[in-house]
Design a protein around this nucleic acid. Sequence first.
DNA 1: CACAATACAATTTTTGTATTTTGTTACTTG
DNA 2: CAAGTAACAAAATACAAAAATTGTATTGTG
Lengths: 211, 211
Amino acid sequence: MESHASDPRDRILETARDLIRRFGGAKTNVVDIAQAMGLSHSAIYRHFRSKAEIFDALAAATMAEEAALADAFVKADAPAAERLAALVLTLHRSKRAKLADDPEMHALYRRIVEERPDLIADYARRMTGLLRLILADGVARGEFGTMDLDAAAGAVRDAFTVFIHPAHVEAAAKAGLDQEAGLQTVMGLVLGGLVAGSIQGGAVQEERPDE
Amino acid sequence: MESHASDPRDRILETARDLIRRFGGAKTNVVDIAQAMGLSHSAIYRHFRSKAEIFDALAAATMAEEAALADAFVKADAPAAERLAALVLTLHRSKRAKLADDPEMHALYRRIVEERPDLIADYARRMTGLLRLILADGVARGEFGTMDLDAAAGAVRDAFTVFIHPAHVEAAAKAGLDQEAGLQTVMGLVLGGLVAGSIQGGAVQEERPDE
DNA sequence: CACAATACAATTTTTGTATTTTGTTACTTG
DNA sequence: CAAGTAACAAAATACAAAAATTGTATTGTG
């Protein structure tokens, strides 16, 4: 886990990120990245097997940041309902902020979400795991009723996907809509359901690749 | 509301649909449609102002079919919870079936969903209205607790978007996943929340363009 | 005069080609 | 041998010319 700024992989990623922010993902190529670092482009291929791997790594980094953001709420000491609500709201705002502050990186992320279902499946799995932890804690604390934790975590993820999926967030933003009120309402509904308890999967709950 | 097969507009739409099914939306042009009807292409322009209008009308027809499908559950005489569950499940299965049986028309629909937020907003509005009717009935019957109907209907729509939005349904299908179990679980959660009641909007609930 | 065909201008798509970019390999250098 | 360069083949991209498609205006016909 060494994340020195001198790790060549990280330096490449940071340079790439900088170029993408300035000129966009479409106009950034491997030669440019190498040039910005004072190297020949083939030096890059010592550390990444392809251009796609560089771009994927940037998207993966974004996902990791979000997972870290979410993780804070899993570890926090507060009622599960509060943590769940705060987690989802934070992720939503993070996506919105990224769209506004860093549109080129958002566009890259959005593209990769569309063409790399496997990366998304991993991300969804990780996030669902975090949700599961909060739900389990909520049950342990007596806040929530009984439930099939895996099914419930997947259901919570699905119910909030529309507030976190970059394509939906972007569509809402372009239409000039604020999704936060809707998010709060869905949260009210879901928390009501969780408190009522007896949540079971309709069958074995599969993994879902969306998000 | 005359829908004779002899209405020229309908005949054009049916011909277009047939060609799209056979050769795909990309390879179907106005000249082809006219040719298939034994007309010159300019005759088509007596009835449609542009090619886009033809394609949009096909998507709108699909939306109307779904709205009709949903409407049956609004009018049915059964507990609101049952009707709500059946409505959402039916819409989900309808999208899945379309994807499997009519992939070219599904692709066209998916494309239009992406590039015509206004059409989608209308569709979402109509569907949300239907959901609202069921919710109102549920409250009247004493099945559900009190709620801000507009906010609740929007929240239900948002929570199930992932099971009905063509992009999500397609992504799940491509990954070989069945979404029905997840849908049932979300439904359990949402119904729990609706029964518990006291659902309010976080603020004034805006219209949402997704779906 | 209603309706359809033809002719035509404006776009858009396709095709073939030149250029750039990617990714590999063989070769330097400290 | 770790890190990099230079040279090169393969693939992707950009571009310009040709072809088609779209949409409109004009003309023809029952």
